[in-house]
Structures are given as C-alpha cells and as structure tokens.
Amino acid sequence: MDLQMASLFASGAFIIIGLFAAVFIDNLIKKIIGIAFIEEGANLFLICLGYKAGGVVPIFLPGMSADWFAANSAYPLPQALVLTSIVIGASTLAVMLALAMVLYRKHGTLSVSEMMGDEK
C-alpha cells in the first residue's frame, strides 16, 4: 500500500470515528473532540489529493527544466486550500469550546442529554 492510499484510509477512519463520537458520545468535550476529528479527516483527505510519490515541492527553482518540474512537482492547490480550512476548523473549535465553558457554568454538567435533551 502506498503512502497516499494509507493516508486516504486514515482520513476515512478519522471521519468515521469523529462522526461516531459526535453522534453517540454524551460528554460535550468528547463530542467536540470527535468534531475536531471530522474536520481533520477532511483536511487530511484534501492534502492527500495533491500527493505525488517521489514528487518535489512545487516551487520552481532556477536551473530546473520546465518539463521535469511539470512531471515531478506535487499539486500545490490542495495545500493552499487546506491552509484556509485548517484556520476555519480552528476557529470553529475555539467557538465551540467557549460555548462549552459557558454551558458548563450554567448547568454544572457536561452531559449533552441533560443540557439539550427533550425537556430542555
């Protein structure tokens, strides 16, 4: 199995574990950890798309021939995109943790079913 395939499987595992945690775990902090897993899985998936086995960094240096560069460089677009989406994931995570703090102070518990269950 090559590196790209292994990373794709890892990203799938991240997403599935994250979805499982986000749906089934009752503790709010653990739910948020699961959600972070989903985001990171999506990021890992994106970054895998630009991978090229034995490729070089996509920076055109003096002395490289254009044909060689085109044949060997990694695809740079996913890397640029992932940078943005990591920032978004981090800010989402920060807002969620802040809300979790407020909710813990209000309810004195981290159990989601007690805070946001049917009777609430």
């Binding site: 709010l28 959600i35 989903i38 989402t92 807002v95 969620m96 809300l99 979790a100």
Partner: peptide, 8 residues
C-alpha cells in the same frame, strides 16, 4: 451549541 454541532 446545537447549531455548531450539527454544522460541524
């Protein structure tokens, strides 16, 4: 919080 979780 619910909107964030579903949004995530």
């Amino acid at each position: 919080m619910k909107y964030m979780i579903l949004g995530a």
